[in-house]
Deep mutational scan, measured.
Amino acid sequence: MSDQEAKPSTEDLGDKKEGEYIKLKVIGQDSSEIHFKVKMTTHLKKLKESYCQRQGVPMNSLRFLFEGQRIADNHTPKELGMEEEDVIEVYQEQTGGHSTV
């Protein structure tokens, strides 16, 4: 019986991991920090939209990076291997420009 009891508790931990929340720091170019608590399985588009709304800027005017890689709207913290207190960097999107060649 103890084996049966242990097995469901392991499964519960697996389920808990799926719905687990982590805190992420979003740091802007001006070094301002906003902290977000997100589920591991939530699409990061929600975090990006919330950040842009707080900053009063359109979402397409900023780019969000985690460990140097651009974050897509459909990425989740779990897919990117994010952990508690990880940092997302935000930069002004640069458009235009010309070749110097």
Rank of each mutant, 00 (worst) to 15 (best):
M1W: 06
D3Y: 08
Q4C: 08
Q4L: 14
Q4G: 11
A6D: 13
A6I: 12
K7P: 10
K7D: 08
S9M: 08
S9I: 08
E11N: 05
E11Y: 06
L13A: 14
K16Q: 10
K17V: 15
K17C: 08
E18L: 10
E18T: 09
G19T: 15
G19Q: 10
E20P: 15
K23M: 09
K23Y: 04
L24S: 00
L24E: 00
L24W: 00
L24G: 02
K25R: 13
K25Q: 07
K25A: 06
V26D: 00
V26K: 04
I27V: 10
G28S: 15
Q29G: 01
S31R: 14
S32V: 15
S32C: 08
H35R: 12
F36R: 03
V38P: 01
K39E: 04
K39F: 00
H43S: 08
L44T: 01
K46D: 05
K48G: 00
E49Y: 05
Y51P: 03
C52W: 03
C52H: 04
Q53L: 11
R54M: 06
Q55R: 15
Q55P: 07
G56A: 07
V57E: 03
V57D: 03
V57T: 04
V57K: 10
P58H: 01
N60R: 07
S61H: 06
S61W: 07
S61E: 04
R63F: 05
F64L: 05
F66T: 02
E67S: 04
G68T: 02
G68F: 01
Q69Y: 07
R70Y: 06
R70P: 12
R70Q: 15
R70C: 10
I71V: 14
D73E: 03
D73L: 02
L80M: 08
L80S: 01
L80V: 02
L80T: 00
G81S: 15
M82T: 01
M82S: 03
E83A: 14
E83P: 00
E83S: 14
E84H: 04
E84I: 00
E85D: 13
D86C: 12
D86Y: 06
D86Q: 02
E89G: 12
Q92V: 14
E93R: 09
T95H: 05
G96T: 03
G96E: 01
G96F: 04
H98L: 09
S99L: 09
S99I: 09
T100H: 08
